[in-house]
Amino acid sequence: MPGPLLEVRDLKTQFSTPEGVVKAVDGVSFELHAGETLGIVGESGCGKSVTALSIMRLVPRPGRIVGGQVLFEGRDLAKLSNAQMQEIRGESIAMIFQDPMTSLNPVFRVGWQVSEPLLLHRSMPQAKALQGGTIMLGRVGIPSPETRARDFPHHFSGGMRQRAMIAMGLTTTPPVLIADEPTTALDVTIQAQILDLLRNANREFGTATILITHNLGVVAGMCERVMVMYAGRIVESGLTTDVFAHPKHPYTWSLLRSIPRLDAERHEPLKPIEGMPPDLIAPPPGCAFHPRCPFKVERCSRDVPALNRVGDQLAACWVTQSGVELKDA
């Protein structure tokens, strides 16, 4: 097996605010291999989007990457000059965002915006780039792309705009595509179409995809591997089938029980996770999840658990690492 395409090692990103330092990403490590689809799940504010923005080096102020490495094809992105990083963005790693209504520039034609990565990275003449962009618009399912390419974003529906965003990401057929909550802002029926589109892109262009979502259903349908994040750390990671069948972290376990499942063996009541998401300025000592954890032991509030092998996957939990099974009380 060849080395990973993208490797994140001990990434730490923090925001300095008047209230204190927010540790949005606190020591995240993972690998992404060519052509695979990796899901990152977690609640709002768990650091999944900041992880993605850190890879792109697009963390907004007052955020800052304070430690760790992001290796793309062996090169540390954190050490590149701005000019070198600009060559990576859009060319090697493309990113699409949550809200298609606001992610397109209202004053430029859609076709031009979609073809701009070609203009930037392939030094193509404008006309040729536009042609490439138009073709890509057609491939993401925009009807009569030649006409629609001349439209402005406000002529497009939300679903169409997200298609255009995906086309924009794919024009350069980058090895890595990061999709940050690509379906959250869309109607349910459109969501499925967009996910299909991402799946096809992954198959057709061999684009490795990082799919960031809070929706476990989306991960189940899309991703080979999944990482679960909580309070800026990865708490569980493994093959999607393993993690979903036998969660080894109480947070994953609780998450899975908080959503309705079609394959439930019996009629289980939904159980929301008790308590509040953690304060990232002053996180709880030990395991950040322990105040909400139904399985917590004395050690959980004292020491931070590392991400270690538990069964078929990795989990950061003192309870499961000591061999205890997660079961209803």
């Binding site: 927010v22 949005a24 709002s44 907004p60």
Partner: peptide, 8 residues
């Protein structure tokens, strides 16, 4: 949500 912060 991009910055999970109470900054704003």
């Amino acid at each position: 949500m991009i910055t999970p912060l109470p900054v704003d």
